[in-house]
């Protein structure tokens, strides 16, 4: 019995969510192998060699894996699948795009977004935007699973034996799907899904310019900046800021919701945060029902005052 974890990476570094996925893998029986696919991804391989609990690295380096498409990666994983009982990837946009395609090729179901492992074949996952939790038992011989990163501890660097590295022949590129452009948000702040503090703004921010005051607070706290769907839909901030059922799921030590009413879909993305602060001028906003500390105030006065006092 062996677990295969797919190491999402940007050819420089392994994405933090992969470390949590390895944390989930460590709760399953058997060795853990890590698939690293990239282009000139030597630094990723070096990072992978140091990770605790990984006994083998499968390394596929090819030009068309610089921005690998699911069409190619799924065929590569299919060629390895018969040796594994579990295939895991983080439930990021990368993992969600890839793993159902892998599962269909193997002819098994896929289990999305698990938050708990009860046994090698039994998992808990949220349904209905987190308003219910389903405990499911898989009957498939290969369990293909995406892992909610915030629900598992990330593994650290180990000091055990270095893993074996096996070089893989890359599959030939699909000509039917090519990444033709990328427009990535550049930021010096921590990544939203792995930050220990998140400051999020909603429709109450009123404009994109007004997010400046949140950014000042975020910089003081070393926090990431997020947003509700309403703020993204209004064009205040880009899509990758969105926290919620269909955006990113975060569970930081401290989540500060500013001018966010607290729709169910938003709560689904942040209610596992350790401490939640809500700042809203409407005392009846549903966000207060999940907040540990609520402050009914005009955010344009309260936020600069908080920033000032830190």
């Amino acid at each position: 019995m062996t677990v295969l974890v797919i190491a999402e990476n940007d050819n420089q570094l392994i994405k933090p969510a992969v470390l949590n996925t390895l944390g989930a893998a460590s709760q399953l029986s058997g060795d853990t192998h890590l698939l690293v696919a990239g282009s000139n991804a030597g630094s990723v391989l070096e990072q992978a060699r140091k990770l605790a609990g990984v006994t083998k690295i499968l390394y596929a380096d090819a030009g068309h894996f610089e921005n690998p498409v699911a069409e190619d990666l799924s065929r590569l994983i299919l060629s390895l699948a018969s040796e594994y009982e579990h295939i895991l990837a983080p439930a990021t946009s990368f993992g969600k795009n890839l793993l159902p395609r892998v599962a269909a090729l193997i002819d098994v179901a896929q289990i999305s977004d698990i938050v708990k492992i009860e046994a090698d074949d039994t998992f808990v996952r949220p349904i209905y935007a987190g308003n219910a939790m389903a405990k499911i038992k898989s009957r498939d011989k290969t369990k293909v699973i995406t892992v909610r990163a915030t629900a598992f501890e990330s593994i650290m660097d180990g000091n055990g034996a270095a893993p074996v590295v096996e070089n893989l022949e890359a599959v030939s590129p699909s000509e039917k799907a090519v990444v033709s452009a990328q427009e990535l948000t550049k930021t010096e702040r921590p990544e939203l899904t792995s930050a220990s503090v998140v400051v999020s703004g909603g429709r109450g921010m009123g404009s994109g310019e007004n997010f400046d005051i949140l950014e000042k607070l975020a910089d003081k706290l070393g926090a990431a900046v997020g947003a509700s769907r309403a703020a993204v839909d209004s064009g205040y901030v880009p899509n990758d800021y969105q926290v919620g059922q269909t955006g990113k799921v975060v569970a930081p030590e401290l989540y500060i919701a500013v001018g966010i009413s607290g729709a169910i879909q938003h709560l689904a993305g942040m209610k596992d945060s350790k401490v939640i602060v809500a700042i809203n001028k409407d005392p009846d906003a549903p966000i207060f029902s999940v907040a540990d500390y609520g402050l009914v105030a005009d955010l344009f006065e309260a936020i600069p005052e908080i920033t000032e006092s830190l």
């Binding site: 990021t92 946009s93 090519v178 033709s180 990328q182 990535l184 948000t185 880009p238 899509n239 990758d240």
Partner: peptide, 10 residues
């Protein structure tokens, strides 16, 4: 819409 921003596939 991807985690880091936007990506176009052909």
């Amino acid at each position: 819409e991807i985690d880091g921003g936007l990506e176009t596939v052909t």
